[in-house]
Nucleic acid binder design. Structure first.
Lengths: 262, 262
DNA sequence: TGCTAAATCTCGAAC
DNA sequence: GTTCGAGGTTTAGCA
């Protein structure tokens, strides 16, 4: 694969601009729907689904092309304030303060960010067409079992997947080595009480339709402590399966497909 | 309140650095535990709880002092790849490619970010001591109770607020429906042992001044488990109050003020 | 449009 | 340390 690197410079940067200068720069970026990074001393007020106040401090603010907003403190994974995509913006200078107001309808809410010092201001138009692929999701576990049913149990034969059962779906549905129906509920992580109850609901539902012996099996990497008791009392089973192992099966199949192709 | 703005420049920026130059800059930032913003063309591999691949494209990367990592595409609220706080980092140049590897134990996982072009690289040490309050701050809760004393208790009448009492302040001070003095200690989060002891101290102090029946009441959204015993043994009381409810009172009053204004 | 379940959920508090 | 529950959760998939 060839990687092409453009020599264009998509980023324009101001260091320590005055608020007036920054305001003009920001307004231009908004009108051109550019993304923006700000670093500076600011305080933030939010009101909408809830309301919050953030006192003054130095933070990193990202405003994206799609109208999403992130206010990041110097530590922590999560933004302290934010807005999902779709905001409209208003920029205003009042004395030595620059205020950016992000508003959205439905739900009606707004975030006000006020700066009295801007250390860094970058505007940019980023090009990103790269594909993102996540492996070993719950859907991947399902696919892996359908490709190699022995992952679940020797002699298991899937009948259908995502069989429609009110009020949801059965992850995998099939017949075991001795002809009993099997309902499988998949969890990519440790299965808890909720997963057991969900499985029980599905099993009950299938029971009303098929009048024959029926197994309900929870498949997950681990079973939560308290869940074992409920599982047993409801006559259900547990089978340990790592998502990582499923990913390997898929990767192998994927590469075989590639091998077949060439 | 005076706001002090330091004139220091906490941000150091390189525009379009060569990967080698960038690598040195980044290594320096890591060794000084500085935060970092990168904008450039990159691809990302993640493996751990799940695994993912992200093809090349232009993105914004934030690495914080606490070892958290965010990879942001040009749109969307959520980062496409990330790591929570606590990562260790390794930087390496291989040909024209700069690779930053973020690793953490428990769960064992890593994110590899490879750049072939860096448009912007900023390192910084941000100072952020601002308090964040969701719904309402302690001061807001105080204001709300003064505006609507029934939030605290039917028949309650505040006498003064922030009544000076050594060694601190009483949040709210008043008389209840049957004429007893009441000292109120406010907490916007779950109140623990320390809050109880603080209230006890205030109550003792007021007792020396006013020789009449006196109630000490801790007001908070919840009381920590162990705190109930101490509270009772000291003859103090607890009253549950959500900051959210206070925020609503204030919002309502605020809008009424606006209505009066027009 | 509204609801439900999943998430590399994160984050905090209790045990 | 692990487990549990909440979140301004967000997001994706369907009825």
């Amino acid at each position: 694969m060839a990687i092409f690197v453009s020599s264009r410079n998509p980023v324009a940067t101001l260091e320590n601009p005055a608020v007036k200068e920054a305001a003009e720069f920001i307004k231009g970026a908004f009108s051109e729907r550019k993304a923006m990074i700000l670093v500076g001393n600011c305080w933030v007020d939010y009101t909408g689904r809830a309301s919050s106040k953030l006192e003054a401090g130095e933070r990193i603010i990202i405003i994206k092309e799609d109208g999403s907003v992130l206010v990041h403190r110097p530590s922590g994974y999560e933004p302290v304030n934010w807005q999902p995509p779709g905001c409209l913006f208003h920029t205003r200078v009042k004395g030595d303060t620059l205020r950016i107001r992000a508003v959205r309808r439905k739900p009606a809410e707004s975030v006000n960010i006020s700066f009295n010092k801007i250390h860094l201001l970058s505007t940019m138009r980023l090009v990103d067409r790269g594909e993102f692929s996540l492996h070993a999701s719950e859907a991947d576990m399902q696919r892996a079992i359908l490709i190699d049913p022995s992952l679940f149990e020797e002699g298991f034969a899937p009948i259908s997947y995502e069989k429609k059962v009110e009020p949801g779906f059965v992850d995998v549905y099939g017949v075991d080595g001795v002809g009993r129906l099997v309902v499988v509920e998949l969890k990519r992580r440790t299965a808890g009480r909720d997963a057991v109850l969900q499985l029980a609901k599905y099993v009950d539902n299938v029971k009303t339709m098929a009048n024959r012996e029926l197994r309900g099996v929870l498949v997950a990497p681990r079973l939560a402590k308290g869940a074992q008791v409920i599982l047993t009392s409801l006559g259900l089973e547990f089978k340990a399966l790592e998502p990582k192992k499923c990913a390997e099966i898929l990767r192998r199949t994927e590469s075989r497909k590639l091998a077949d192709f060439f």
